[in-house]
Simulated scan of single mutants.
Amino acid sequence: MQRGAAAVSVAIFLLLAAGAYSFIGVAQQPEVALENPDHTVVAGDQPTIEGTTYNFTEVGDGSATAQWTNESARYTAEWAPEDTVVYEGDNYTVAVPNQSDPTEFELREVQTVDRPTVEQNGTTYVIVEEDGERRLVERSEYVGEPTVHSFSEGDQIALPDNDNETTVASVTNETVTIEWFAPRTNEVSFEEGANATLGESGTPYLAHFEQQTGGTVLQLTTDYADYNSDVAAQQEFHERTNGLWGIVILSGLAAALLIMLAFLPSRY
C-alpha cells in the first residue's frame, strides 16, 4: 500500500515536471522590435542626422561606431609665464606683467652666446678673441637689446606649423591661452539599449541592433516607450521561465525523495 501511494505521488510529480519542461520547450522569447525607428543604418552608411553627417565605420552584433567631423572645432595652446616658445623661428620667453588682471603679455627673445663666458664680480663677460688678442665684453653689450613682441587679448599671433588663424584668447597671471578653429574628427559609439547624443541639437537616440537579411542593422529611436515595453516583456518571459524550471527541479527532487522513502525497510 505504501509503495502504491508513493507510485501515484511520483507519477503526479513527474507529470508536473514533464508539463513544465514541455512548456519551456515550446515557449518563445518575445523579441525587441521597434515599430518605427527614426534611422536604420548598416556599416558604410553616411546618413545626415539633424544637420550632422555620420560615417558608420562599423556595425556589429551589439555595438557600432560612427565618425563625424566638426568643421570649426576649437583648439587651444596654453603658455605659462617663463615658458620658452617658438615665434617666427626663434625662441622667446613668455612674460606676463605683475598685475591683478592682465590683458597683455610679451615674448622676449632668448639670447644665446656662441663664445665662452666668465663671471667676474657678479657680471657675466664674453671672451672675445680678435687678431690674437683676448678681451672681455659684458654679455649685455655683446648680445645687444633683446627683441620683444607685445600682444593683447584679441590680437592675432602666428604659431609654428599652424596655418590656421590663431588669436590670443585670454591672459591671466598663470596662463596665456592661444586659440584657433579647425576641423576635428570625432567618434561616437553605440551599444544595445544605450543612449547616444547625435545631431547639432544634441538629441539622445536609443540604439537597438537587429539581424536582417544581409547582416546586422542598427536602429536608432527616440521612442523609448516602444523599446522599454519589449524589454519588459522579455524580463517577464524570463521570470516565468525561471518559475517553470523551479517546478521541474522541485518536482524531480520530490519524486526522487518519495521513491527513496518508499523502499525504506518497514519497522513492522
Rank of each mutant, 00 (worst) to 15 (best):
A5L: 08
A7F: 06
A11K: 07
I12T: 11
L15Y: 02
L16Q: 05
A17M: 12
A18W: 04
Y21T: 01
Y21D: 08
V32M: 01
N55T: 12
N55M: 02
G60F: 02
T69G: 02
S72H: 11
R74H: 10
Y75D: 11
A77Y: 03
Y87E: 13
D90S: 13
T93C: 08
A95L: 15
Q99E: 15
T103W: 10
T103H: 15
F105A: 09
F105H: 08
V110H: 07
Q111C: 04
V118S: 12
E119G: 14
N121F: 14
T123L: 12
G132W: 01
E133S: 05
S140F: 00
S140P: 02
T147N: 12
T147F: 03
H149F: 10
I157H: 01
L159W: 01
A169F: 03
S170I: 06
E174N: 14
T175I: 13
T175V: 13
E179P: 06
A182V: 07
E191H: 06
T203A: 01
A207Y: 00
H208D: 04
Q219V: 05
S229K: 14
T241M: 04
N242Y: 00
G243M: 00
L250T: 11
A254I: 06
A254N: 09
A255I: 09
I259K: 13
M260L: 15
A262S: 12
S266E: 05
Y268P: 03
